[in-house]
């Protein structure tokens, strides 16, 4: 039995050394650049540390208390949720509709797919500059068109009542193609005989087929797209930073922008860390939900 144990430890030793030699650098980087920094955020959130300060003290949950007593932070949270609540249905429903339309026939399919997908991969910082020109109150294309049609115009990015919706529209514009592509993949995965079965069962029209087969079969994809879109909406930063800086009057300030301003604008590391933790918790909850959905998808396919 001793020989057994020795042999086993020997094989472990040789394989282990290979394994860690190869995985070691990545494991080190993973710990040093992701895992430990992420953990440190929780710790910093319990201190009153400011960037550049030599000392800091432990303040317990003070940062969180302050945060949740701060109407501005509430405003940022509320804006974020309102924004996500506009972006998600807007992206998912239009994405689904366009995917259905594009996939329903073959002509120009590649062109339509490319045209709708293009915004997703174009540099948002540069496109935000283009959007700003489109939305310019006097010389922007949108207001010119509206006034030519005799419709009321607005100062879209400077008016507290329109700014959040405007940013949401830009997000929908950006993420629509992504949702569309995911739905197209989901549509391809639906077995053809289900449609034949529906035909036999008397589901004749396109709407019947949609209601009896397509939409129910897209259920898991739908859930998945909803969560992925919500995650992307939560991580919105570029447009806020470039187009509004959270204004006017914090009407478009969102979580990630608040995080950025507190941490790197005011250098309030402790407070920034507390916001980071709130952000992380929301993202992790959504991601875990997404993994559950993915697991289920794997089982079904």
């Amino acid at each position: 039995m001793t020989t057994d144990a020795q042999a086993t430890s020997m094989e472990h030793a040789s394989q282990s050394s290979h394994g860690w030699l190869l995985a070691g650098p990545a494991a080190f980087a993973l710990l040093a650049l992701i895992i430990l920094p992420a953990l440190s955020v929780f710790f910093v959130a319990l201190t009153d540390w400011q960037f550049g300060a030599r000392t800091f003290s432990y303040v317990g949950l003070e940062n969180y208390h302050e945060l949740f007593a701060d109407p501005d932070f509430y405003k940022s949270l509320r804006n974020t949720f309102v924004y996500v609540l506009i972006v998600v249905p807007g992206t998912v429903l239009t994405g689904l509709a366009i995917a259905l339309l594009v996939e329903s026939d073959r002509t120009l399919r590649t062109f339509y797919r490319a045209a709708h997908f293009l915004p997703f991969m174009a540099t948002l910082a540069a496109m935000a500059v283009a959007w700003e020109a489109l939305l310019h109150p006097t010389i922007g294309l949108l207001n010119q068109a509206l006034s030519d049609l005799g419709l009321p115009t607005a100062n879209w990015l400077r008016d507290p009542s329109t700014v959040l919706v405007t940013l949401a529209v830009i997000a929908i514009w950006k993420n629509l193609g992504f949702a569309m592509v995911l739905f197209m993949a989901g549509l391809k995965a639906i077995p053809r005989d289900l449609y034949d079965a529906a035909d036999v069962d008397g589901a004749v029209g396109a709407t019947d087929r949609l209601r009896t087969v397509t939409l129910p079969m897209l259920g898991p994809t739908m859930l998945f797209v909803v969560i992925v879109t919500a995650l992307r909406a939560l991580e919105t930063f570029d447009t806020v930073n470039i187009l509004t800086q959270g204004g006017p009057a914090r009407a478009s300030e969102m979580l990630l922008y608040t995080l950025y301003v507190e941490s790197f604008g005011y250098l309030q590391a402790g407070r920034g860390a507390a916001i980071t933790v709130v952000f992380l918790i929301i993202v992790v909850l959504l991601t875990l939900l997404q993994m559950r959905v993915m697991d289920r998808r794997v089982h079904y396919s």
Partner: peptide, 12 residues
């Protein structure tokens, strides 16, 4: 799972 933005503060 951890989004890059969470790491900004410690990485900075």
């Amino acid at each position: 799972i951890i989004p890059q933005q969470v790491l900004a503060l410690p990485l900075f």
